[in-house]
Simulated assay, not measured.
Amino acid sequence: MHCWTELGQVPPGFGPSVVTIGNFDGVHLGHRQVLTRMVADARAAGTRAVAMTFDPHPLRLHRPDRAPELITGIRDRLELLAETGLDAVLVQPYTWEFAHQSPAEFVRRYLVDGLRAATVVVGHDVRFGWQNTGDLSTMVELGAEHGFTVEVIDDVSTPGAHRRWSSTWVRELLAAGDVAGAAEILGRPHRLRGRVVRGDQRGRDLGFPTANLAPDSDGMVPADGVYAGWLTRTAGRDPAPSELMPAAVSIGTNPTFDGATRRVEAYVIGRTDLELYDDEVLLQLVERLRPTLRFDSVDELVDTMHDDVAKARVVLGV
């Protein structure tokens, strides 16, 4: 899959293409269903399948107080988009200059001249151009003017579901600690990715050495608690990056020790020999085992940690 970070990187003469536009945060099952269908249609028509997305999220500029916490960082978003079979993704930097384009300017510059769209795939609620003045009827009119068709997609959900699949729903579930529920919409376990940094090293003293993720790690951090999951080293030393290791993951401030800083730390089950400092790791959270608790003694904490590991083994089947 080609990945372009500005319109000027699109090769001259690229296309014709089928283009869809969106944030695609989390690349959940609704996104994947639409994108895989779009890819199949593009293949049948002999065209290219392209997604246009934005970095940062538009609300970071327009309403920073209302900007959502992103489910996935841009790297994971691109990896997940690539899995749908797309030919290319244009990651458009969302700047004030870009935002000030009129709907007609955006369509001509990006969809017509840049990506040579034969078909544009949008939702019923599509908005584009300065102050969101462009809507579905505007896109259809501009399509007729420039020679591309507009395909409107319906909301996607599981049969009998009470609401459509959406990034908003995933965020609500993660905020409640329901990573298993989020996985049903994402079609995969929720991911956190970041560099391992040094913590207080209390876990090592207690017999549970942990890998602490840097505060600037990618992925929405779910509610405080203890989770069963998988850790993969994606950049660094041995073991090979492909090794999937079972883990018990703690998220919270460590109230037993009067901690004030919220942290994500993972204990790789049965491993006290790992050296992960400064390596990049990927955490996949499978199930929440319990909320964060304050213990009256270190012995009580250690006993509970042993129980957490036992429960994590059952959940992960190891």
Rank of each mutant, 00 (worst) to 15 (best):
T5V: 06
T5L: 07
E6V: 07
F14H: 11
P16W: 00
S17A: 08
V18Y: 07
V19M: 02
V19F: 07
N23Q: 14
D25S: 12
R32L: 08
V34D: 00
M38D: 05
R43N: 08
R48Q: 03
R48A: 05
P56R: 11
P58F: 13
R60Y: 09
L61R: 14
R63Y: 13
I71L: 15
L78T: 07
L78P: 06
E79R: 14
L80M: 10
T84Q: 09
L90F: 00
P93S: 03
Y94K: 05
W96F: 12
E97Y: 02
F98W: 11
P103L: 04
V107R: 11
R109N: 10
R109T: 12
L111W: 12
V112W: 12
G114I: 10
T119W: 12
D125W: 09
V126G: 07
R127L: 10
G129P: 13
W130Q: 13
G134P: 13
S137P: 01
T138C: 09
E141N: 10
G143R: 10
A144C: 11
E145P: 04
E145S: 07
V150S: 02
D154F: 04
G160N: 06
A161P: 05
H162A: 14
R171Y: 04
E172A: 02
A176M: 13
A176N: 12
A176W: 11
A180S: 14
E184D: 08
I185V: 15
L186T: 09
G187W: 11
P189Y: 03
R191I: 11
R193C: 08
G194I: 08
V197T: 14
R198V: 13
G199P: 13
Q201P: 10
R202W: 11
L213P: 01
A214C: 03
A214M: 01
A214Y: 03
M220R: 11
P222T: 00
P222H: 01
A223K: 03
G225C: 01
V226A: 03
V226C: 00
A228H: 03
A228Y: 03
G229H: 07
W230Y: 12
L231W: 06
P239S: 09
S242N: 11
M245D: 08
V249K: 10
T253M: 05
T253W: 09
P255L: 05
P255T: 00
F257S: 00
Y267W: 13
Y267V: 04
Y267C: 08
I269L: 12
R271D: 06
R271V: 06
L274K: 09
L276P: 02
L289E: 06
R290E: 02
V298A: 08
E300Y: 01
L301P: 01
D303V: 01
T304S: 12
H306Y: 02
D308I: 05
A310Q: 08
G317H: 07
